[in-house]
């Protein structure tokens, strides 16, 4: 039976740890050995939304494993522009490839692709819902920084309402033991209530604040996010909060020595460039982890590891 990677809701802790172990295993393989693992295989990238890191990271991951990549990153030059349904596009693309990576602005699209196709589907972001490969690379980075994910103290900062990377990582962290959350956002961008539920539907309590400076002193991870203009129905609402948070190096003066600042990127103004060279910056390490983690995912879903 084929496997897909659609949502953190589908994975239990053992599944998550399996992917993290695979990434660790891949990292230990010599490059000349890695490049033979997916020789002759083809990855299809179907990107209905802009992307730099996720698409390039998958392309890099696949090519370093010896495979090829085809696909599209905008729909204007495809039959989608002629009105082809998403399902028909998937049924066509699966005939050209061994696995499909899909990004789409509508929530649930990757799930539909997985139900439609007979080859593995990887969700590279569906609307404001999930971004599981980003979550796995975030967890991998956290584990590298702190040795474990259990008992980590993490502050999510910025757009907690619309950010799929936050939603996805938040749900994954709920599966670990003793994780402490601080949710830092403007009132209008609070984490949606449906995410603050136990698996049985019980309401859970979290520390919610708009004070970034206080959160810096009390956490091991600060997960910054961009306020996403493209998710706002009314641009005036975006204007009110777009510069709500800007993390500068001077603000990190009293932070714990092992604090790491993570960000799924791209950033706009929320992290000043003067943080980049500090020991706290972990966001470009995330980018590097992204290739390794995605290699592990590809090898697992294609039945090699």
């Amino acid at each position: 039976m084929k496997s897909d990677l659609i949502s953190m809701n589908d994975l239990d802790l053992a599944d998550i740890e399996h992917y993290l172990d695979l990434a660790h295993q891949v990292e230990g393989l010599p490059a000349q050995e890695r490049v033979r693992l997916l020789a002759g295989r083809v990855l299809m990238v179907m990107f209905y939304e802009p992307s730099t890191r996720t698409r390039l990271s998958f392309e890099s991951a696949m090519q370093k494993l010896g495979g090829g990549v085809i696909g599209f990153s905008e729909t204007a030059s495809t039959s989608i522009a002629k009105g082809e349904s998403f399902s028909d596009t998937v049924l066509t693309c699966e005939r050209y490839a061994d696995a499909i990576v899909v990004r789409h602005p509508k929530e649930g699209t990757a799930r539909l692709a997985a139900e439609t196709a007979s080859i593995p589907i990887i969700n590279a972001g569906d609307g404001t819902n999930q971004h599981p490969t980003q979550t796995l690379l975030d967890l991998y980075t956290i584990k590298k920084c702190h040795g474990q994910v259990d008992n980590v103290r993490i502050a999510f900062v910025g757009d907690l309402k619309y950010s799929r990377t936050v939603h996805s990582l938040f749900q994954a962290l709920l599966k670990y033991q003793g994780v402490k959350f601080t949710l830092v956002s403007p009132e209008s961008l609070r984490l949606p209530g449906y995410l603050k539920l136990s698996a049985e539907g019980r309401q859970l309590d979290f520390d919610e604040t708009d004070d970034l400076q206080a959160a810096l002193a009390q956490n091991d991870i600060v997960y910054m996010t961009r306020i996403q203009a493209e998710r706002f129905a009314d641009i005036m609402d975006y204007e009110k909060v777009k510069n709500a948070y800007c993390l500068e190096a001077r603000m990190l003066a009293g932070a714990p020595a092992n604090l790491k600042v993570l960000h799924p990127l791209p950033r706009v103004n929320e992290i000043s460039p003067d943080v980049d060279k500090s020991r706290f910056a972990g966001y470009f390490d995330q980018v590097e982890s992204g290739v390794i983690v995605r290699q592990g995912i590809l090898l697992s879903l294609l039945g090699v590891l």
């Binding site: 809701n9 929530e107 649930g108 799930r111 819902n129 449906y194 539920l197 698996a199 049985e200 539907g201």
Partner: peptide, 16 residues
């Protein structure tokens, strides 16, 4: 979600 809950998760968008 759970035996006593009246909350339901959409299989596609995963909202409750």
């Amino acid at each position: 979600l759970g035996e006593t809950s009246h909350k339901f998760r959409c299989a596609y968008c995963e909202r409750v």
